[in-house]
């Protein structure tokens, strides 16, 4: 088991004692039945993720990283073991209660963006609040604020078809943030994006982590994983490696460098989170 997160992030906690991890798994196991075969997708994962950590989960397909992400995302239930989210054991909750946990404490960003088609950015971001009973006016206000936070304050009425891939992913990030979750899960968020836009998205995650948000990123691209503070590598349903990134790439710096090398590709405004 690795050492807890840096004291710098813990210093932000208002408590005097050591803050509890956002994610705490204990011998988490998932076994699927496929006909007569038993597929052991996870074979006992014990892992902590502290508040404000930006963790990348890597691994080949079939390594169990997606299964792990589904369990941490409360989309699925473990076969054995325990999962404490923000100190609360959620591994035995009902389907409905898990939906509540997802709505209140988690935010998702997917590879395929997964926005509602023919629906404005604002309404897409309003969606999670709809299930938490937030009133209409308040919903719109908070959705607009979340979109401004990812630099899309001027694209509220645009539908996904009217937005670029990077912009769509930012709408998805705004949607993940809007209920102020304890943990944001990003499943291959850069898989459908070009390299520059990928770095832009990484910049947003780095900023969010710096603001104290916990981010778990699933990726198979090593250079994307290098933006995280810590990389956990899965293999055959077990954690193969869990190590700190000695010198994480700073996405903002990379963008500045790329733009100075190829000014023709640069967006008009490269300031934090603004849209091209």
């Amino acid at each position: 088991m690795r050492a807890p997160a840096e004291s710098a992030t813990r210093a932000k906690s208002p408590q005097w004692k050591v803050s509890r991890p956002v994610v705490q798994t204990d011998a988490l196991t998932k076994t699927y039945k496929m006909g007569d075969m038993q597929v052991r997708a996870l074979r006992g994962i014990t892992l902590n993720i502290e508040q404000g950590e930006f963790v990348a989960v890597m691994g080949q397909s079939g390594s169990g990283k997606s299964t792990f992400m589904n369990l941490v995302g409360c989309l699925d239930k473990p076969s054995a073991g325990h999962y404490l989210l923000d100190g609360e054991d959620v591994s035995r909750l009902s389907r409905n209660d898990l939906a509540g946990v997802r709505g209140r404490q988690l935010g998702f960003v997917f590879q395929g963006f997964n926005l509602l088609p023919r629906t404005s950015a604002l309404e897409n971001v309003e969606l999670p609040m709809l299930y938490q009973g937030v009133k209409g006016k308040e919903r719109q206000r908070r959705a607009a604020k979340a979109l401004e936070r990812v630099g899309l304050g001027d694209r509220l009425d645009h539908t996904p078809a009217q937005l670029s891939g990077g912009q769509q992913q930012r709408v998805a990030i705004a949607r993940a943030l809007v209920n102020e979750p304890r943990l944001v899960l990003a499943d291959e968020p850069t898989g459908n994006l070009d390299s520059r836009t990928s770095i832009e998205v990484m910049a947003i995650f780095q900023e969010l982590a710096a603001q104290g948000l916990t981010v778990m990123l699933v990726t198979h691209e090593p250079d994307i994983a290098q933006h995280a503070m810590r990389v956990v590598t899965f293999r055959d349903g077990l954690v193969q490696r869990d190590e700190r990134v000695a010198k994480p790439l700073i996405a903002r710096e990379e963008l500045t460098r790329i733009d100075s090398e190829r000014p023709e590709d640069a967006p008009l405004d490269v300031s934090a989170g603004s849209a091209p």
């Binding site: 939906a99 709505g103 509602l116 969606l127 938490q132 949607r175």
Partner: peptide, 16 residues
């Protein structure tokens, strides 16, 4: 189906 998946992922319960 995908829309239903999205709604569930962001906190929609079965009865919603």
């Amino acid at each position: 189906t995908r829309e239903i998946g999205i709604r569930m992922a962001v906190g929609g319960r079965g009865r919603d």
